[in-house]
Simulated scan of single mutants.
Amino acid sequence: MRAAAQLLIFVHGITTDFKIMEELAAMQSMKGTTTGHDLVTEVNACLDTLGLKWDKLAGVTTDGYPNQMGKNVGLLKRMQDKVTEIDPEQKLVFLHCIIHPEVLCKSVLKINHVVDVVAKIVNLIRARALNHRQIVVLLEENETEHCDIGYHTAVRWLSLGKMLKSVWELREEIQDFCVKKGNGIPQLSDADWIADLGFAVDVTALMNKLNVKLQCKGLFVHKM
């Protein structure tokens, strides 16, 4: 499962009584290539399984990857070709998922000087089993809200906000622990860096909240 790309296909439409519906139609594991041809083959199989017709398709929303957006062999081009075969006059409406550009906004925040130090702190604690066990015991003894410190991965970017928040709330305990280990973190005593950390915590928390809100069913932009 980890080595396979996952293709999620959602169906968004209007019922006969004019109610808007959205459902997860299929989740396909792409264990081989993920070209536009591969994707449209899976989409076609999904529509066949559900008994849906290509000429009923009005629009497609994607997250903007090249294998979807390619103007010659991308998924959208191939889907338009499918519809054109049935009705040469029908043009699909292509939309871009707004969650993806919202994620990209994070890259312009210029908080790497904060994230890099926090990642170093977390790796120092989590990379060695003894350190990890000792920090967990310390947090339990101090009866802190957090009982552990989680990793951050670039793929699961939502974890960044959680990691920053946990380090922010445990910064004093972490500094004491690192000093005892002979690996004091000078940034944790730097008022300017601490201020930047607090800013990063607030911004990523707002972005996480927005991201979750964007994924709600039946939500329209004008209601956000």
Score class of each variant (00 low, 15 high):
residue 143 E to Y: 02
residue 204 T to M: 15
residue 79 M to K: 02
residue 216 C to I: 04
residue 137 V to Q: 14
residue 70 G to T: 06
residue 210 L to Y: 04
residue 42 E to N: 10
residue 77 K to F: 04
residue 218 G to M: 06
residue 59 G to I: 08
residue 113 H to N: 12
residue 43 V to Y: 05
residue 218 G to V: 09
residue 96 H to L: 14
residue 82 K to Y: 02
residue 44 N to V: 06
residue 114 V to G: 02
residue 71 K to F: 01
residue 221 V to G: 00
residue 69 M to K: 12
residue 27 M to K: 07
residue 201 V to G: 05
residue 169 E to W: 05
residue 52 L to E: 10
residue 49 T to G: 09
residue 219 L to M: 08
residue 67 N to K: 02
residue 186 P to I: 08
residue 204 T to G: 11
residue 119 A to Y: 08
residue 126 R to W: 06
residue 62 T to P: 10
residue 110 K to T: 03
residue 94 F to I: 12
residue 56 K to G: 04
residue 111 I to M: 13
residue 151 Y to C: 12
residue 23 E to R: 14
residue 66 P to A: 14
residue 104 L to Q: 09
residue 28 Q to T: 12
residue 109 L to E: 01
residue 58 A to Y: 11
residue 71 K to A: 12
residue 78 R to D: 08
residue 214 L to C: 10
residue 80 Q to L: 10
residue 142 N to P: 00
residue 31 K to I: 07
residue 7 L to P: 06
residue 74 G to A: 03
residue 38 D to W: 02
residue 59 G to T: 11
residue 73 V to S: 11
residue 105 C to K: 02
residue 224 M to L: 15
residue 176 D to A: 15
residue 139 L to N: 00
residue 8 L to Q: 07
residue 86 I to C: 04
residue 109 L to K: 02
residue 72 N to K: 07
residue 163 M to C: 15
residue 104 L to C: 02
residue 148 D to N: 13
residue 61 T to P: 02
residue 10 F to C: 15
residue 120 K to N: 15
residue 51 G to F: 11
residue 111 I to L: 15
residue 22 E to V: 04
residue 11 V to R: 01
residue 75 L to Q: 09
residue 181 K to I: 07
residue 40 V to D: 07
residue 117 V to F: 05
residue 132 H to W: 06
residue 138 L to F: 04
residue 43 V to C: 13
residue 177 F to T: 10
residue 200 A to W: 11
residue 108 V to S: 08
residue 32 G to D: 07
residue 201 V to H: 10
residue 181 K to T: 00
residue 138 L to H: 03
residue 72 N to I: 13
residue 223 K to W: 00
residue 17 D to A: 02
residue 100 H to Y: 05
residue 196 D to Q: 14
residue 184 G to N: 01
residue 34 T to N: 05
residue 73 V to R: 08
residue 189 S to W: 08
residue 159 S to L: 06
residue 30 M to N: 04
residue 81 D to Q: 09
residue 118 V to L: 04
residue 39 L to Q: 11
residue 162 K to I: 09
residue 99 I to P: 01
residue 109 L to W: 03
residue 88 P to S: 10
residue 9 I to A: 04
residue 8 L to Y: 08
residue 145 E to F: 05
residue 112 N to G: 06
residue 123 N to D: 10
residue 16 T to F: 07
residue 19 K to P: 05
residue 149 I to L: 15
residue 224 M to A: 05
residue 216 C to W: 00
residue 193 W to R: 12
residue 115 V to G: 01
